[in-house]
């Protein structure tokens, strides 16, 4: 395994990948994709398709930390619609039907609209945002996402004054999703944010990662990414976005309200009832790191001024 000493809590200059290496890695990926397309590796990976490119311009909101290798980002995650083990999504998500795809934005808005996926891609300039991702289970990654602030989409539909929350509803395709055939969670997967959280520039409407369209196991074709909250808050494969007045009941809270709250901000001082949240294992590192408040995104702290984050966990 790759053994790397973790810095106590911040990133070392050595962790910043020099751009030329970053570019070379991309060349390698292009090469791999080309090799796949030409069928050189096709025999080995029958279900792999050449990934479609989706580039975004670098964003000042990116972390300089070096991204977690592509194979881990796409090979190890939670996506319960495809099974409850972290290797399941990579194994089972190829069945997800992503074409055609549209996202209906509705509820307390002046201009409800259904967006085709191609419209979404063109709605705002794409950016590459390299974000930390902290899972509630105590592991973390760094992922170069591609997308734009969700605010750009929400502004188009013009939320009314009574809209206080945004609800995200994920796709349910029972024939294509092995996990949905079992009632571990109450499908469809529902997530939610307060409107001001949803409008925060960090909240990303995500269409790609590592310079290509989202792999199916990572929530193709469109998901959100909320980097200061535990991973499950970032809903995948979204089909509906509703603006509502009351706080939505999110799937994990519904399944176990004692352990999962609506806010679920990354918070090292509030333990999960079954494990500590003080530290995390960055995939690829040997020792654990200290977990940072709001996953290191302190610019969101003002959203929660005066709130007891132990109560609103």
């Amino acid at each position: 395994m790759l053994i790397k000493r973790a810095a106590a809590n911040d990133c070392l200059p050595s962790e910043i990948t020099p751009p030329e290496i970053f570019a070379r890695r991309r060349e390698f990926m292009q090469f791999s994709a080309a090799a796949l397309a030409s069928g050189a590796l096709g025999a080995l990976l029958p279900s792999a398709e050449a990934a479609e490119k989706l580039a975004g311009k670098p964003s000042p909101l990116s972390t300089p930390e070096s991204p977690t290798p592509y194979k881990h980002v796409t090979g190890y995650n939670n996506f319960y619609e495809f099974g409850t083990d972290k290797e399941d999504p990579a194994a089972n998500a190829h069945l997800l039907q992503t074409q055609p795809w549209s996202v209906s934005v509705e509820g307390l808005v002046k201009k409800p609209k259904t967006f085709d996926i191609d419209q979404l891609v063109k709605l705002a300039p794409l950016e590459e945002r390299i974000y930390r991702l902290r899972c509630v289970e105590g592991w973390s990654m760094v992922i170069p996402w591609v997308g734009y602030s969700l605010a750009a989409l929400l502004k188009q539909v013009e939320p009314t004054g009574s809209a206080k929350y945004v609800e995200f509803i994920s796709a349910v395709q029972p024939e294509n999703m092995v996990g949905v055939q079992r009632r571990v969670l109450d499908w469809p997967y529902v997530e939610g944010l307060r409107l001001d959280e949803a409008m925060h520039p960090l909240t990303l409407l995500t269409l790609g990662l590592y310079g290509e369209v989202l792999p199916k196991q990572n929530g193709a074709p469109v998901r959100i990414t909320v980097p200061w909250k535990y991973g499950f808050k970032s809903a995948k494969s979204i089909v509906k976005i509703r603006l509502v007045e009351k706080q939505p009941l999110i799937s994990w809270e519904k399944a176990n309200p004692r352990e999962y709250g609506f806010y679920s901000n990354v918070n090292p001082t509030v333990d999960h009832p079954r494990w500590s949240q003080a530290r995390e294992r960055r995939l690829g590192e040997f020792t654990k790191r200290e977990t940072l408040m709001f996953n290191g995104y302190n610019e969101v702290a003002s959203l929660y001024a005066g709130m007891d984050l132990r109560k609103y966990f």
Partner: peptide
């Protein structure tokens, strides 16, 4: 598997 790094993304787990 640990030595050869074939235990997946989170070998320690």
């Amino acid at each position: 598997g640990f030595q050869q790094d074939t235990l997946g993304a989170n070998p320690i787990e």
